[in-house]
Amino acid sequence: MSDSLMFNNDAYVLLETDRPEQILTPAEMFAKLQEIVVKFADDLPNDVRQISGTDARVQYLLDTSCELDLVPGEYVQWYAVRLEK
Results as ranks from 00 to 15, higher is better:
38 V>N: 10
21 E>V: 08
81 V>T: 11
21 E>Y: 06
39 K>Y: 09
83 L>Y: 08
76 V>C: 04
7 F>D: 12
42 D>R: 11
51 I>N: 01
23 I>E: 06
24 L>H: 01
36 I>D: 00
18 D>E: 12
32 K>N: 10
32 K>D: 02
57 R>P: 01
78 W>R: 02
73 G>Y: 03
84 E>A: 15
46 N>T: 11
2 S>Q: 10
48 V>E: 03
24 L>Y: 02
49 R>L: 14
81 V>N: 07
77 Q>C: 15
21 E>R: 14
85 K>A: 15
27 A>E: 04
10 D>T: 07
84 E>C: 15
61 L>R: 01
29 M>L: 14
9 N>R: 15
40 F>H: 01
35 E>N: 12
18 D>F: 12
35 E>I: 10
22 Q>M: 12
80 A>D: 06
3 D>E: 09
85 K>R: 14
68 L>I: 00
60 Y>H: 05
32 K>I: 07
40 F>A: 04
56 A>C: 08
55 D>K: 12
10 D>E: 04
23 I>Y: 07
15 L>M: 08
24 L>R: 04
47 D>N: 09
34 Q>G: 15
28 E>G: 08
34 Q>I: 10
67 E>N: 15
83 L>P: 09
29 M>N: 03
22 Q>V: 08
21 E>G: 10
21 E>K: 14
13 V>Q: 02
58 V>I: 03
33 L>F: 03
32 K>H: 09
17 T>R: 15
9 N>Y: 11
29 M>Q: 06
38 V>G: 09
40 F>Y: 04
12 Y>K: 06
1 M>E: 13
80 A>G: 13
51 I>D: 02
21 E>M: 14
64 T>K: 01
56 A>M: 05
24 L>Q: 05
25 T>C: 08
16 E>R: 07
11 A>I: 07
26 P>C: 08
75 Y>H: 14
85 K>S: 13
35 E>H: 12
35 E>Y: 05
12 Y>G: 05
65 S>Q: 04
39 K>T: 15
68 L>M: 05
71 V>Y: 10
40 F>N: 03
7 F>R: 13
22 Q>H: 06
54 T>K: 06
21 E>A: 14
84 E>P: 08
79 Y>D: 00
45 P>M: 06
31 A>V: 04
27 A>G: 13
29 M>A: 13
62 L>Q: 01
1 M>I: 11
